[in-house]
């Protein structure tokens, strides 16, 4: 994926690259509502399990970058895809910022702007095509039958129909 690597330093900010409206865009997005409540305490970063493994990932800093208007840089970056959605920060944030949902909101905006991590593109294709994360083959149902388990449906016409006009539908065309 092109773009900046996770958590690259935020030392040089060129103000002409900043989009002061970005934060309002996030506020309007499903899950993004509370972003402006953040007072940068760092509780999220302190308890984040991804951060504990790789300190280039820093949820507090991602929020700061959004509030500063670093739109391109945030949306193009790999790090918005690194949140493991563990909800630790969500439960512990003293300001009820709901950071896990903000990460989802940022990913949703990124997808609409044409940035998507390849692994999620793959998932989207499968779910869009089969209504499931895995393609169920006859072999699977045979195996299930042998174990005494009922067969599972392989495709869902109504799911395909309902996503036709969504971003997901567009992605599987």
């Amino acid at each position: 994926m092109e773009g900046i690597k996770i958590g690259g330093g935020v030392d040089m900010i060129n103000t002409k690259d900043l989009d002061p409206n970005f934060k309002y865009e996030v506020v309007k997005e499903h899950g993004g509502t509370n972003i402006m409540r953040c007072f940068a305490c760092g509780t999220c970063t302190a308890g984040c399990p991804v951060r504990a493994i790789d300190d280039r990932y820093n949820p507090r800093k991602i929020i700061r970058m959004v509030l500063l208007g670093m739109k391109e840089r945030v949306l193009k970056s790999d790090f918005i895809w690194l949140c493991s959605t563990c909800y630790t920060c969500y439960d512990r944030c003293p300001q009820d910022v709901r950071l896990s949902d903000i990460m989802t909101a940022l990913k949703n905006i990124a997808v609409r702007e044409g940035y998507i991590h390849p692994s999620f593109k793959e998932q989207a294709k499968l779910v869009g095509t089969f209504g499931r994360l895995y393609e169920v083959e006859d072999f699977d149902n045979k195996k299930r039958g042998k174990m005494g388990l009922p067969p599972v449906k392989k495709t869902f016409d109504d799911v395909t129909k309902i996503i036709k006009d969504t971003k997901l539908g567009e992605m599987i065309k």
């Binding site: 779910v127 209504g131 449906k153 869902f156």
Partner: peptide, 19 residues
Amino acid sequence: GFACCGFPVKSISAETAMV
């Protein structure tokens, strides 16, 4: 009729996941 719960598409669109 039970299909995917929606979780895998939440990163693409939280609203589609909701549907």
